[in-house]
Simulated assay, not measured.
Amino acid sequence: MKPVPENETQPRLKNTAKLGAFVPFEEEPVEEHERKREVFLGLGKLMKTFPVWQNKKGFVPRNRFDKLNKELYDLFFYLAPTREETAYKEKVTRMLRAAAAKTWGKDATLETVGSVRTKTDLPTSNINITVLCDKAALEKGEAERFAETLAKSGTAETNLLHGGTVLQCILQDTGLSVEITFNNRAAIDEAEKIEEWTKKTPSFPELFIALKTFLKTRRANETASGGLGSYALAVMVKNFLSLHPKIQAREIAPKKNLCVLLVEFFELFGINLNTRDVVVTESGYEKRKEATQPRIAVMSPTDPELDLTKNTFLWHHIRSVFENAHYTLVDALVSNATERNPPETASILSAIIDDTDPLFS
């Protein structure tokens, strides 16, 4: 799908352009592309009127591209942490910091990492913390003592996971999970990267949140169960936006074309990317050293030897739902069949994201 230039009002469809001298794509033949579109025709009927994220008081654009663009911003602001949620998580962090000081004194510092730090958390997201302290202290069983300190406070139930390297706390008042690691400087580096992209890459946070929500509602976002983790997804979004030819040529304004970027992201990673032969990096592609399984490989920006998707064994399923979402949205956006035209109040985004998911409760 071709993005909408700032001086154009009517979007046009076109396959995503190839990027750079190294072509990591396997673009579908036109006949196959059209055949799959026919398979997904009519899925727009699943659209719902006024899902929970849709601003009922705002103006509803008649143009379907503008409507989806507005919906993506509605979703972004709907899922943004409220003042109460932010205050609660800050309170939890202060409690943990006090417990760390009681256990280690001035020899330990506590850092918030993950989505809470980067302000890309969803309502059900865990709080992720890393404690920086003397390694020798941890080897003497101080992690267990920290768990005991928290348990005695009566605020959380604790479990030591992965051989004592991760401490899980379930907060008794809300049931929210806090995962605490020790001396996990890589998590700090990852958080700093996402903070940088959020500030400097236009439309990164909005597109990232939409995709996180999509994967969350498909139960495909947990690496422990073979899903696509948030940091790997963030690298994919940064890669996509950094290499988008129309953005780089300044021919489009990303914020005005968020809906088209979402559709093209699904097209790239759900259909066109040659995942067997390439490695996705923060700002480009590298050729794999040897042929492997067609699972996507995403390189960590801070550790070139680390494949962030090495445990994403559900990639075949994830790629399939990306492809499904691409054709569903294309059908909803460009179909001219009168019988499939949705009502003006219908949500296009609800064709791929279910607002009855527990995430929205």
Rank of each mutant, 00 (worst) to 15 (best):
M1K: 06
V4P: 00
E8F: 08
R12G: 03
N15T: 05
K18S: 02
F25C: 07
E28A: 15
V30L: 11
H33E: 08
L41E: 10
G44D: 08
M47L: 09
M47F: 15
T49I: 15
F50Y: 14
W53S: 00
W53N: 05
Q54G: 00
Q54M: 14
P61W: 13
N63P: 00
K67A: 01
D74T: 02
L75A: 04
L79S: 03
A80V: 01
P81Y: 15
E84M: 05
E84S: 14
A87P: 02
R94F: 14
R97P: 02
A98W: 12
K102M: 15
L110N: 11
E111S: 09
T112Q: 15
V113A: 05
V116I: 12
V116C: 10
R117A: 09
T130I: 11
V131K: 10
V131E: 06
L132K: 09
A137V: 05
A137E: 11
G141L: 14
F146E: 10
K152D: 10
S153W: 15
S153F: 07
T155S: 07
A156D: 04
H162I: 07
Q168A: 12
I170P: 00
E179L: 12
F182L: 01
A186S: 06
I188V: 08
K193D: 02
K193Y: 13
E195R: 09
E195P: 03
P202N: 13
L207S: 06
S230M: 01
Y231L: 01
A232S: 04
V235R: 06
N239D: 12
P245Q: 11
Q248W: 11
R250T: 01
P254Y: 07
K255H: 13
K256T: 10
N257W: 06
N257K: 04
V263K: 03
F265R: 05
I271Y: 07
D277L: 03
T281F: 11
S283Q: 10
R288N: 01
I296R: 03
P304T: 02
F313Q: 05
A325L: 08
A325P: 05
Y327N: 03
D331G: 06
E339L: 10
D354C: 02
D354G: 07
